[in-house]
Simulated assay, not measured.
Amino acid sequence: MKLKLKRAFQAEMQHAMRYYKIGDYTAAFYHLERSHILGQSYVIPHTKSHWWMLKIGLKTKSGKEVLGQLMRILASILFSRLWVPIGNTGGTNVSPLKAMPIPQDLRSLLDD
């Protein structure tokens, strides 16, 4: 992972963890979606995004999110280096196979 992309991924994760700590799970999940977009082509960052989404699913008692994230964690370990649906935000509110538009501010990080 190039340094600029790694720093952006880490910044999104830091935002997510800060919101998680104060119980603002909606804001935390938003930043996890952004970190997922940035890290989905790399096994460890991809899996880390899903792990934190799973934690939010547990905190919010969302069975759908918990089950979906468990499946996505396994898939992130197996498939990150082979194929990912570019731009997918990683939550259970979207198909795990659906490519999605990349937010403008993240696009330049991924183009490098």
Rank of each mutant, 00 (worst) to 15 (best):
M100A: 14
G91N: 06
S41G: 14
K48T: 15
A11C: 09
L70P: 00
L5W: 04
L67Q: 01
M71R: 14
S49H: 00
Q14D: 09
R34D: 08
H36I: 13
D111C: 05
H31K: 05
K2P: 14
A99G: 04
Y42N: 07
H31Y: 13
T89V: 12
P85I: 08
P85C: 09
G68K: 02
S80N: 05
K64W: 05
A28E: 09
R107M: 10
R34A: 11
T89C: 11
G23P: 10
Q10G: 04
S49W: 00
A8V: 05
F29M: 14
E12Q: 13
N88A: 09
L5V: 11
S62C: 00
P103S: 06
I102C: 01
G57W: 03
I56A: 08
K55G: 00
A16K: 01
H46V: 01
G90I: 02
H46Q: 05
A99I: 13
K61T: 05
A11V: 12
R72F: 05
L109P: 02
M1G: 08
A28D: 08
E33W: 00
G90P: 04
R34C: 05
K98T: 09
K6Q: 12
Q69V: 04
G90A: 11
D105R: 09
G87P: 03
F9A: 03
S49Q: 01
I22T: 12
H31F: 14
Y42T: 15
S76A: 15
A11R: 15
M1V: 13
Y30E: 13
R18I: 05
H50M: 08
T92Q: 03
P101R: 15
K64G: 02
I22E: 07
P96K: 06
S41H: 14
P103N: 07
L82D: 01
A11W: 11
S49A: 15
L58K: 14
Y42K: 07
G57F: 01
S62H: 02
I44K: 15
L38S: 12
M100G: 06
Y20L: 08
A8S: 11
R81P: 11
Q104F: 07
R72D: 00
M1T: 09
